[in-house]
Amino acid sequence: MDAKRIIVCDTEKCAGCEICEYICSIFKEKTINWSKSRIRHVRIEPTFDIAIACRKCEEPLCVKACPRDAVIELEDGSVRIEKDKCNGCGWCIEACNFGALKLDWDHKSVFACDFCADLDQPKCVEFCPYEALEFTTLDQVGHEAGVKAFKRIIEELG
């Protein structure tokens, strides 16, 4: 299995600036409109911030939930919304456990992250001023967490 790269948010670094949302709408919709962003910032007061995009689930519930077969799973694990089939019913939004999909108010459709497929990395990751976003695999995230934990032990043991 090819490791899937997803957008991972380090919640310790994320300050909730929402620049990812601005940038996403600019590069995807050619306008500044954070409600059209494919990545969603969530703040839980007073001290928790995270940005969430598609997790490339193994068996995506959003695909299963769509009554019109408008949510298509692609080879890289992301999903595409077939706009001509989609009527914006929003079952996919309900089905997603992460809140990674967003309603497109103007077109009775849904926004889903395509990870800026034609670029090396998603624009939100490129612009994130806090370096909280990373385009990486879960294996790599696990590995880095291990390295970090081990470094801490080494430091503590001197």
């Binding site: 300050a15 600036c17 007073p46 001290t47 806090y130």
Partner: peptide
């Protein structure tokens, strides 16, 4: 300080939340 938070469009994050 428990957390640094930012206002929308802010790359600085001066807001330091004390707990």
């Amino acid at each position: 300080v428990k957390k640094v938070v930012a206002c929308p469009s802010c790359p600085i994050g001066c807001d330091h939340i004390n707990v």
